[in-house]
Simulated scan of single mutants.
Amino acid sequence: MEWKSLTTSEQIEQIKQDSQQHPVVIYKHSTRCGISSMVLSRLERAWNSHEIPLVDAYFLDLIRYRDISQLVATTFNVQHESPQVLVINQGTSVYDASHTMVSYPKIKEQVVDLANS
């Protein structure tokens, strides 16, 4: 899988714009958390770009970019968690999951459903 690093507030605006055309995934990762590392590893092993239609996937290091992490929570009206995944569509978060509830099958289901609607 090919992550785009989420490091600026301008990217959040771009994500909102891009999500008008196709779903966007944001993964919020804590480099200090063993659960976050386990979830990231599991997600990367399972990710299959052929199963999911056009989707941008952003990686947010929330320790390094704490202010961006808070802006994501505020912009998309989700409580900050770590690890956390959000699926953005039409400028809003249509799905979020945290901790061990983050799973590739659920993300895939959300993205495919959006692509087929």
Score class of each variant (00 low, 15 high):
12 I>R: 03
29 H>Y: 07
89 N>P: 01
24 V>F: 11
86 L>I: 02
16 K>G: 10
29 H>A: 10
38 M>E: 10
73 A>L: 09
29 H>N: 04
17 Q>T: 15
42 R>M: 11
75 T>A: 15
90 Q>G: 15
60 L>R: 02
82 S>D: 04
40 L>D: 06
24 V>T: 12
63 I>L: 15
33 C>T: 02
18 D>H: 00
73 A>Q: 03
11 Q>T: 10
80 H>S: 04
46 A>D: 04
81 E>C: 05
61 D>I: 06
18 D>W: 09
27 Y>W: 06
31 T>W: 03
30 S>I: 01
86 L>S: 04
20 Q>L: 14
33 C>R: 01
14 Q>P: 11
12 I>Y: 08
48 N>E: 07
65 Y>L: 06
27 Y>D: 07
82 S>R: 05
45 R>M: 02
56 D>R: 07
68 I>E: 00
8 T>P: 07
39 V>W: 08
59 F>E: 10
30 S>Y: 02
42 R>W: 00
56 D>K: 09
10 E>N: 12
33 C>V: 01
61 D>K: 04
16 K>E: 13
11 Q>Y: 10
85 V>D: 04
23 P>K: 01
47 W>G: 09
28 K>T: 14
18 D>Y: 10
65 Y>M: 10
20 Q>F: 09
35 I>R: 07
49 S>N: 11
87 V>D: 08
89 N>H: 15
30 S>F: 00
34 G>A: 08
72 V>P: 05
31 T>V: 14
35 I>L: 07
72 V>W: 14
70 Q>K: 05
87 V>R: 02
74 T>Y: 01
58 Y>P: 05
85 V>S: 07
14 Q>C: 08
13 E>V: 08
54 L>F: 13
90 Q>E: 09
78 V>I: 11
61 D>A: 06
14 Q>R: 05
24 V>I: 08
52 I>G: 03
59 F>G: 12
69 S>M: 01
81 E>Y: 02
24 V>D: 05
51 E>P: 00
47 W>M: 09
26 I>N: 09
45 R>T: 11
76 F>T: 02
16 K>M: 10
55 V>R: 03
54 L>T: 13
20 Q>V: 10
55 V>D: 03
33 C>I: 00
29 H>P: 03
14 Q>I: 08
57 A>M: 11
59 F>Q: 02
8 T>G: 14
15 I>L: 13
14 Q>A: 12
10 E>I: 05
65 Y>C: 12
83 P>L: 09
